[in-house]
Design a protein around this nucleic acid. Structure first.
Lengths: 211, 211
DNA sequence: ACCTGAACACCGTTCAAGT
DNA sequence: ACCTGAACACCGTTCAAGT
């Protein structure tokens, strides 16, 4: 058992780390435990994340906030850490036009985003001090910017509305996770109702004509 | 130097811990370092927090979310952990009537809450999986409930609006902390403008007549 | 390039002991 | 009651070495 080509990769490591986090919490993730789960010596992880646990945490944060399970965030995040530029070609090069009216686009995005954050709720606290610049993040900005512009906002108000939307979404998921074990906590269905209620209200307030 | 009546207390420990967190981050807080800062052996902390670091974290979370610096949360949190009831007399026994219209009351509360979370931003991630039941928390609920009722909401909508408000406030602070070191990050004044913009919009949307 | 294994400094916590 | 000090199991990370 000397040589061990375990086929380790950044993504396999991240997925296994998230599995541990989901089972034992963020504090339960140790490099040694991660190595065990990957059937590898703990130090092997350092070959893929030379900067150690902090770099792994950044990668997890990027992974969690990127909608695609195959992890488009991996390349971008690796480039970021080593000082390279992102591999993205030109600006607006992938300008995907979503179908439907602006509010449906925003609501759909929010629903997907919430679902993903809830799926990896154990890693949520990693996001408080980390805002990884992923492809998914740029795509989201374009989508939200376009939607609010279409809704009639302009100038600084577009940025302000976008910030309010992001704030509400991550805040709502955190509020949900924080309170889901309270004695009088609402069930899953009602929690989703509340999320959509708040979202609808916020969008209405953001796009109503100013007094 | 055998005997050492250091005059340790839960509050002194919490304040010192927050000082360390503020300087070196949450990961920089160790029991040994905390002991050093308090000029005491690390193990002395365990006499005041017998359940260890997790209990200390809970106490910090309660302290941070309680507006009074003297920490009204301390007693409530201690009671909670040891299974005692809170010392609160009857329901609605302290029904304080705030002055001003409902939206001013909510805006004032939000401004104070945001300021406190920003002051202890290093401890923010502790709140993601902790919702300590403090006196401040009960008072806030009464205030918010009353304000939204006065605004014309009724039934489940009051709870839903309250959840949306909490969600927005903690989400906004987290969004602010997450992005304040971005290259193109807005300055402090603009960040406050954005917070109030989003808050105003949310309140307007929450209390507008349904379509 | 990819992984091992020993080593080092540090950590949370227990426990018996001191005053 | 309040604090000490030694001890134990565990941790992140470095480094030299193996293939």
């Amino acid at each position: 058992m000397s040589r061990n080509y375990a086929g380790l990769s950044r993504e396999r490591i991240i997925v296994e780390a998230l599995h541990i986090i989901s089972g034992r919490g963020l504090g339960g993730l140790s490099m040694r435990r991660l190595g065990d789960a990957l059937e590898v010596e703990a130090m092997a992880v350092y070959h893929h994340f030379p900067l150690g646990k902090e770099q792994l945490f950044n990668a997890i944060a990027a992974y969690v906030t990127s909608p695609s399970p195959t992890g488009t965030a991996l390349g971008a995040e690796a480039a970021e850490e080593e000082g390279r530029d992102t591999e993205e070609g030109g600006p607006d090069s992938v300008e995907v036009v979503d179908p439907g009216p602006w509010d449906a686009r925003l609501t759909d995005w929010a629903r997907v985003y919430r679902a993903r954050l809830l799926e990896y709720s154990g890693a949520l606290s990693l996001l408080v001090h980390r805002a990884p610049r992923t492809e998914a993040d740029t795509a989201t900005r374009a989508l939200v910017h376009g939607a609010f512009t279409e809704a009639g906002l302009s100038g600084d108000d577009v940025e302000r509305a976008a910030d309010a939307l992001y704030s509400y979404c991550v805040g709502a998921v955190i509020h949900e996770v924080r309170h889901r074990d309270d004695e009088d906590a609402p069930d899953g269905a009602e929690r989703e109702v509340r999320f959509r209620f708040g979202l609808r209200s916020l969008l209405r307030g953001l796009t109503a004509a100013d007094a």
